[in-house]
């Protein structure tokens, strides 16, 4: 197991380097500069700024320096938010994004597995068909439509919840963003659970358990659920990644002080270290989530431990 984890971590280094290289080169090819303001700077100030941030060096040198600093855990200074380092901004934004994303992942898994179970109890019954149709609809819902619509209905019309804002993570402020973010993944999880269970229910060990008189809920929870959840587990890694990306929109819609908006703002402002830092961090998180999902998979399915 430890060998597998180490091997996967080693294999992720090239992927991470590729992400950094790609983002670095793309950002530098973009026209414009972080120091373009309303008034053009005089050339001397401009040259001094470029020199201070090392932007006057050739690109390979800049890249080398960046990687060297990164290896020491230093994401560099933000070029636009002048008094902050990228690490400061990540420290303030990451907890918000992780809270929203984590809660959305938990709701998606919990709700999805529950709906999948409800559907499979009476296969092809009206509840099954109705649930699966609504879950298909859920998977196709874009968060930037559901977010504003949920805010419109539950905040503006019904007045039950606040429209937007963070308020230091007060639960009332979390409900709508988490729900909007979780719905599409919840649909996918429900469909996977339903399909996985339906497949497992045909297998010999279930027939054997039935022959021993086990039925209904006990049959599912003790014998069918564990193998049936394998597809859900392999989906959880990519889903976590999708939730992180989806958080970019949700943070914009609900005016949350998360990390996602720094990607968009930073890219528009040409704040190179900020964008690079956030993209690198997200890439590392995505690799980590996929690894965790694989470890969990190995724990649930002894056949792949090898």
């Amino acid at each position: 197991m430890i060998g597998l984890v180490l091997r996967r971590l080693l294999a992720s280094i090239p992927t991470l380097l590729a992400v950094i290289l790609l983002s670095f080169v793309l950002m530098r090819f973009a026209p414009g500069s972080p120091f373009d303001g309303e008034r053009p700077l005089d050339p001397e100030t401009r040259a001094a700024l470029d020199a201070a941030y090392g932007l006057d060096q050739p690109i390979p040198v800049q890249l080398g320096r960046y990687l060297l600093h990164l290896a020491h855990g230093d994401f560099g200074p933000s070029l636009v938010y002048r008094d902050f380092t990228v690490t400061d901004l990540i420290h303030s934004g990451l907890p918000v994004s992780l809270t929203i994303g984590g809660l959305a992942l938990i709701s998606a898994l919990g709700g999805g597995i529950m709906f999948g179970l409800m559907a499979v109890l009476r296969p092809d019954g009206p509840l099954d068909r109705g649930l699966m149709l609504s879950m298909t609809l859920l998977t196709a819902l874009p968060t930037f439509v559901t977010g504003p619509v949920l805010a419109l209905v539950f905040a503006l019309w019904l007045g039950w919840l606040p429209v937007a804002g963070w308020a230091a993570g007060a639960p009332r402020y979390l409900v709508l963003p988490v729900l909007a973010l979780a719905l599409p993944s919840m649909g996918a999880v429900a469909k996977l659970t339903r399909a996985g269970l339906a497949q497992v229910m045909e297998q010999d060990h279930i027939r054997a358990a039935r022959a021993r008189g086990k039925t209904g809920w006990r049959l599912i929870s003790h014998h069918a659920l564990r193998p049936a959840l394998l597809p859900v587990v392999s989906y959880a890694g990519p889903a976590a990644a999708g939730l992180l990306t989806g958080a970019v929109v949700i943070e914009t819609v609900f005016a949350l002080p998360g990390l996602g908006r720094y990607v968009v703002q930073g890219a528009l402002n040409r704040d190179y270290p900020l964008v690079l830092g956030v993209v690198t961090l997200y890439a590392a998180l995505i690799i980590l989530f996929n690894l965790l999902a694989d470890i969990l998979y190995g724990w649930l399915d002894p056949r792949v431990r090898g």
Binding site: A241, T245, V248, Y282, A283
Partner: peptide, 9 residues
């Protein structure tokens, strides 16, 4: 494995 939305951005 790449965070594609960011690459697109």
């Amino acid at each position: 494995a790449l965070p594609f939305m960011f690459v697109v951005i």
